[in-house]
Amino acid sequence: MFFHIILERNLQLHPRYFGPHLRDKLVSKLIHDVEGTCSGRHGFVVAVTAVENIGKGLIRDGTGYVTFPVKYQCVVFRPFKGEILESVVTMVNKMGFFAEAGPVQIFVSNHLIPDDMAFQAGDVPCYETSDGSVRIQKDSEVRLKIVGTRVDATEIFCIGTIKDDFLGLTGDPGGAA
């Protein structure tokens, strides 16, 4: 799920930037530093939307750098266990399939795919029901439930399931759901 939250960060700035454009410099440094990063606590920082407040700078002993506490609003994407969301399939193999929901990667193991769907190898590997009515392949749109998350230093990785009511295929490759 996407959230709009307020975060705080201390920015260190070299004294050469002190001047009329100090604030602009701080804002662009903030955007450069935080956009695209990921932490286990707050998820992926997608975009900074506003800077709320820039506090008083504090000169660091010895270096001359100044630390500014900056409060900013941003859009983050944070997956939660138990959350249901839509995703796009990126890779299918006999172990299961990978899907993407925005910045996050989700793996659905073949144990968490309904039993009536079987893996079909070939040019376009897919999971298919025996009558061929449902087919999950690359670029399919799939609704899934997150059952677990793992946090890396720079990435959040999720495990999902489609073995439940109202989960599974929602759109075919290329087609709008």
């Binding site: 709009h4 266990k81 138990g82 249901i84």
Partner: peptide, 21 residues
């Protein structure tokens, strides 16, 4: 404790504003 199906989102996100796609 985190579980979205029971609205347990942790203290950081409990009062955060959610956004629709």
């Amino acid at each position: 404790e985190e579980d979205a199906s029971e609205l347990k989102l942790g203290e950081d996100f409990l009062k955060a504003k959610c956004l629709m796609n």
